[in-house]
Design a protein around this nucleic acid. Sequence first.
DNA 1: ACCAATTTCCAAAGCGCTTTGGATAATTTT
DNA 2: AAAATTATCCAAAGCGCTTTGGAAATTGGT
Lengths: 343, 343
Amino acid sequence: MNLRDLSLLLDLSQTTVSRALNGFPEVSERTRTRVRAAAELHGYRPSAAARRLATGQSGTLGLVFPRERNMLSDLIFTEFLGCCVEQASDLGYDITLAMARGAQTEEAVYRRAVRSARVDAMILSSPLIADPRLGLLRSLNMPFVLHGRTRSSVPYATLDIDNRSAFLQATRFLCDLGHTRIALINGDRRFNFAADRESGYREALTMKGLTPRAEHLCGGVMTENYGEAEAARMLRLPSDDRPTAFLCSSIAQAMGVKRAAQSLQLKIGEDVSLIAHDDRLADVRAETFDPPLTATQSSIGAAGKRVVELVIQQLREPDAPLPSEVWPVDLVVRASTGPAPRT
Amino acid sequence: MNLRDLSLLLDLSQTTVSRALNGFPEVSERTRTRVRAAAELHGYRPSAAARRLATGQSGTLGLVFPRERNMLSDLIFTEFLGCCVEQASDLGYDITLAMARGAQTEEAVYRRAVRSARVDAMILSSPLIADPRLGLLRSLNMPFVLHGRTRSSVPYATLDIDNRSAFLQATRFLCDLGHTRIALINGDRRFNFAADRESGYREALTMKGLTPRAEHLCGGVMTENYGEAEAARMLRLPSDDRPTAFLCSSIAQAMGVKRAAQSLQLKIGEDVSLIAHDDRLADVRAETFDPPLTATQSSIGAAGKRVVELVIQQLREPDAPLPSEVWPVDLVVRASTGPAPRT
DNA sequence: ACCAATTTCCAAAGCGCTTTGGATAATTTT
DNA sequence: AAAATTATCCAAAGCGCTTTGGAAATTGGT
């Protein structure tokens, strides 16, 4: 059942049927409903290929699978990707994946994706502090939305969460509880989000008259093991230098910190306070942490959905100004934080 | 630069240019090279949309993102997916993702993917013991290849590893070392691969005159925590019942077992032997485990690539018999296994 | 009732490729 | 040298949709 069959059936022209179905104004409401009903009845599905050929749009969004730069723990990326796919399919778009292979540079992957012209726009995630992909896509004339922000001379559409403010708040909150030695176990510092978090952390300390100390600061992968290793290292410092509170970039890292603390008989929420950033993954919940985890929270899934909306919006109105959203992040206080222990 | 421009430029017909580029035999080798050179020179890329429309093939493979059934630990699925994408792109295919949303049934997702006809074939992964998706896709007339096997009345193309034999070998190996109480920490038993592994395990025990015991057997998620919890439970059994060896379905679970053992001052490879299945993920390596881990190994990435090859082969020759490959699995002995401790 | 403005609909021209059914030129056979 | 093959190449017809530039029908104003 194609457009022609349907139009013959309805005794209308293809033009009218097409317009009725696609919501154009120059068709009366009566025929529109008639057309819709018939299409529904006969299970008419427009051919994606034909539409693509006619419009020059592929109805497809591209996303490059960050195998090389998977500093971003896979679980988090997976959630992001999943929600992008979900939202895209709701809006009638497909998402196709590309991937940087061992030998091939990431740039080559982007070039190929663009040249094959199978993709209307791309979604970029986890930008570096200065990310070369922006300039590349710009020069290739490929629209994109960045999940995150970065230092760049080219203008770009972005959705990001307010990492700086989140970690500023969290740090200040710990200071207000009397903590003076606060450790930051961050994500890989080549990424912009990690840099932002660090800057919030530093600013809060400075505001409180404290100086950030190098031995209380580290950045790496978002895993439990990394968190445990770094926390264990810091907790072995002499008691005057040992942190009494930890700030983590992910719940996985916080689990590691908890483990390190426990092996020293330190109780989370009493001897050691703990805050982590909570991406609101379905399986890793701050509220079921033991003890329930104080967290800066923001749903990475919701962000994925919104990014897709933004990118499609941009496709529909190419001349609209590039959107730039920054979501606030809530600090939710639970039982893993408490007043600094007396010396 | 499209086909017509190129043909005008070469003073050939579109037919000839198209055929030259696509390797048809009815074009002389001389003009073929001439055409190829010109195409290269002018950066000609055939339009995917036009080709799709003309051929009725979309050049796209579908894969449903298993959010609900993510018993399969995400890391492993991610590796599988990544390699599928890589191989597909090498062979000129795209992979688009679909996803089962909360409310929507998995079936609806498949139906939608098929109806929208944007996909030539689908890749199915991690089948249940009896998986309804096969019948569904068959009835929708959508070609597919299954990664794994399942109980099904419909014929299907498949690539699987020999899970049964792998776990049979591993179990027998442990028996030969004198172990008589061998625990199996399996994947979720609704999945066929887990059932196969259990059956290999049971068979080996039976062959050796041992009876599998319910308290030594469990199946669940492929995580370190799950492995630790179950191992801890088993290691608390009275010493006559306590397992001296563990068989795990993933390295993550093995890490949990190691942790449980260590917290009881038990040494892996001496007090407790440990074997796990190793999917050959880049970041999780059996050989850098401490101690190096005896493992049944098979690259899930290689399987992903091969699945893509099979599915494309099937697309090219729809009448060829459905392929059915079963890969043998090697047991690689390292230091995590040793003779059963004397009582 | 008549003309202009507005709705509502349509025919036909692409979009860029593949593929069918020949036509023409080169080669071999008789 | 003519006939039969075979190797090359081509014109044109789709594939199923969108969209342009009107035409026909309806409406409104006088």
